[in-house]
């Protein structure tokens, strides 16, 4: 088993929490992990990405090679497109459709959706709406984790255990909201 996953978004959107849940689950599965993050300047509202690699064999590089990502999981639609050169021929794009507009030249959504359509079978998610249904718009990232879950190579139950471990200190209600958000994303991906 080996998965190369690119997590994408804008600084402050919570992709590191997605990474932390997958990391936690992979670690408890006894898998090897390499997960490269972006700290520093770009975190101020810039484009950020995390390369996440999990495997039952030894991993060397912290970075994913071009054309070898099994999954691009993005919490922002334009950001999903930025990393297409990394996508493997049979790789999948799973992205939120909620644009984060903090520049003047943001392209029209129709054009973004048209480009996403060219990537095979993208999973497109109205993450903020589903997160609100689950109890908090802030849980959008867990909706996206749920939507991406079937392509991570890790059982959803293990990822849910990761959510509990990660959000446990913030109280049961926060855990419940995030689990509900995760399940909504998962359900969308599975149908």
């Amino acid at each position: 088993m080996q998965k190369n996953i690119i997590l994408a978004g804008v600084g402050g959107q919570g992709i590191l929490s997605i990474a932390a849940v997958i990391d936690w689950a992979a670690l408890h599965e006894g898998l090897n992990i390499r997960q490269a993050e972006v700290h520093g300047m770009s975190q101020r509202g810039g484009a950020v990405q995390s390369h996440l690699r999990i495997s039952d064999q030894e991993l060397f590089a912290d970075l994913i090679g071009l054309g070898t990502a099994d999954l691009i999981l993005s919490v922002e639609p334009l950001e999903a497109l930025r990393y297409l050169p990394y996508l493997a021929p049979d790789g999948r794009v799973v992205t939120s459709l909620d644009p984060f507009v903090n520049m003047t030249s943001y392209p029209p959504m129709e054009e973004i959706e048209a480009e996403l359509g060219k990537t095979g079978h993208p999973v497109l998610v109205h993450a903020a709406d589903l997160a609100k249904d689950a109890g908090s718009a802030r849980a959008s990232n867990m909706v996206m984790l749920g939507a991406g879950a079937p392509f991570t190579g890790i059982a959803p139950s293990k990822l849910e255990a990761g959510i509990e471990a990660l959000f446990g200190t913030k109280g049961q209600e926060v855990v419940d909201i995030n689990i509900r958000a995760f399940r909504k994303g998962l359900q969308l991906s599975n149908t």
Binding site: V10, G45, G46, L66, E79, L81, R82, N102, M103, T119
Partner: peptide, 20 residues
């Protein structure tokens, strides 16, 4: 030989960091 991969679509503009 470099792998043949998709390219980043032209509509993808840069997103530089900014003050909060």
């Amino acid at each position: 030989k470099p792998p043949e991969t998709a390219t980043t679509p032209e509509i993808v503009v840069g997103r530089p960091p900014e003050l909060c």
